[in-house]
Design a binder for these strands. Structure first.
Length: 407
RNA sequence: GGGGAGAUGCCCGAGUGGUUAAAGGGGGCAGACUGUAAAUCUGUUGCCGCAUGGCUACGUUGGUUCGAAUCCAACUCUCCCCA
């Protein structure tokens, strides 16, 4: 592959490369010296679930690996104790050491789905940040200014809105920048929300007399709600380890307008084809639902298999298009203690089955006509029903259970 | 150190003695419709075994009152201005 081709590949999907010439120069140099580039990615082990939004960046890292470069994942165990303020309007909760350790481990299992584990180096930033003395930290801090740090958008807006900013949060970008110094990274990849932190890494590297890293920014993937960025804490995400059925279903719930972004950032469908799809949608030649099914299929195929994707689609059509029951339904085991004269209060049954969190919620579901048992709609929340083995109970579109009577 | 403002349900935000489980919006859930768990419209959204009932809830603790999210005191936390 020529340098130009490499550059084009790496540029695809990025929203910005700072500076573009820098990337070209790094690639050229690596090519001449035969020395792979160090490509850095910081992960914040806040919750043990990698989602499609994280995957956008990870997939970019994979491309670097395929070109022979060295990928270094930094598990921000030390910085997680601070909490990245990026894109935050409130202070993040700090994590305990144990939580971080647990999360980091599950991270490893998950990014292997995208990266080549043999070519991935993993480090924890507590290895060096944890060893700095307070004096060292102050020395590093002296190379940055308050104004420079407060420049960043999320700090500025929080300041304007009169919201609190912890002093420790100001140190977060510095820590991340210092990571780049320690690793002597050539390239740092991140979402656009990482722009400030990554650029600060450039500043700090040059302060330490190093060649500056190149920042490569990927767009932020919008979450399932179609408004906010995909994130674990907002619950609007698709996890890469989710089962095919849920993955497919969740992808079908994105607003139509998001489809293009998802195709571009989450699949390997060639750009020309994506453009053709977009035209097809605009002209009415293609049906949005069919396009979305294709999208869901593409993504499920990446993380599972083509077969799993087909199955997931079949399941989806069965449950939602035809309103039939899914193939696999969890059992609701009823013991003798649950039944009085072979009967059980409908509300209690729903709670017992985990289909409603409280009696009140269960009662509401019944009153709203969401509950059917054995295909029969129940609307009276006071009724006691006589369940029989194998009966299917359904609450709303998503909750199912099959009754199993234990003796 | 001095002065001022504030803390309300999942989130934002109204409410300044009773009719407030607390307006409104967001989000969630459900129903209708459909082209999908899109969009739109409607309903619903603390808990308690059925309630013209009870319990919990408006930063914390205590007080005033027949009655407090609303008044008072102390405390905790946050923001703004001055130094």
């Amino acid at each position: 592959m020529t340098l130009d081709e490499q550059f084009a590949l790496l540029k695809r999907g990025t929203i910005e490369i700072v500076p573009e010439e820098g990337l070209k120069a790094k690639l050229r140099k690596s090519n001449e010296t035969g020395k792979p580039l160090k490509v850095k990615l910081g992960l914040d082990p806040t919750a043990p679930d990698i989602h499609l939004g994280n995957a956008v960046v990870l997939r970019k890292m994979r491309q670097f690996q395929d070109l022979g470069h060295e990928v270094i994942i930094i598990i921000g165990d030390f910085t997680a104790a601070i909490g990245d303020p990026s894109g935050r309007s409130i202070t993040r909760p700090q994590l305990s050491e144990e939580e971080i350790r647990r999360n980091a481990k599950t991270y490893y299992d998950q990014y292997c789905l995208i990266l080549d584990p043999a070519k991935t180096k993993v480090v924890f930033n507590s290895e060096w940040l944890g060893k700095l003395s307070f004096e060292d930290a102050i020395k590093i801090a002296s190379k940055l200014t308050v104004a420079r740090v407060l420049e960043r958008d999320d700090f500025a807006s929080r300041l304007n809105e009169g919201k609190p900013i912890g002093l420790h949060e100001i140190l977060y970008p510095m820590c991340q920048a210092y990571d780049s110094v320690v690793l002597e990274s050539d390239i740092e990849v991140g979402g656009l929300d990482q722009k400030f932190n990554i650029l600060l890494g450039r500043d700090l590297q040059s302060q330490f007399g190093q060649e500056e890293q190149v920042g490569l920014f990927m767009p932020i993937l919008v979450g399932l709600d179609g408004v906010q960025k995909m994130s674990k804490s907002l619950g609007n995400y698709v996890g890469v380890t989710e089962n095919p059925k849920d993955m497919f279903g969740k992808l079908m719930s994105i607003p139509d307008e998001l489809m293009r972004d998802y195709f571009e950032l989450c699949t390997d469908v060639p750009l020309e084809e994506i453009n053709a799809i977009e035209e097809g949608l605009a002209s009415g030649r293609l049906h949005p639902m069919e396009v979305k099914k294709r999208l869901a299929r593409e993504i499920v195929t990446i993380y599972h298999s083509a077969d799993a994707a087909k199955e997931a689609q079949a399941e989806f059509e069965r449950v939602f298009s035809q309103r039939e029951i899914p193939e696999e339904i969890p059992d609701i085991v009823l013991g003798p203690e649950d039944l009085v004269d072979g009967r059980i209060w409908i509300v209690k049954l729903l709670v017992k089955a985990g289909m409603a969190p409280s009696n009140s919620e269960a009662r509401r579901l019944v009153q709203q006509g969401a509950v059917t048992i054995g295909g029969q709609k129940i609307t009276d929340p006071l009724v006691n029903i006589a369940p029989s083995n194998g009966q299917v109970i359904r609450a709303g579109k998503l909750r199912f259970g099959r009754i199993k009577i234990a003796r």
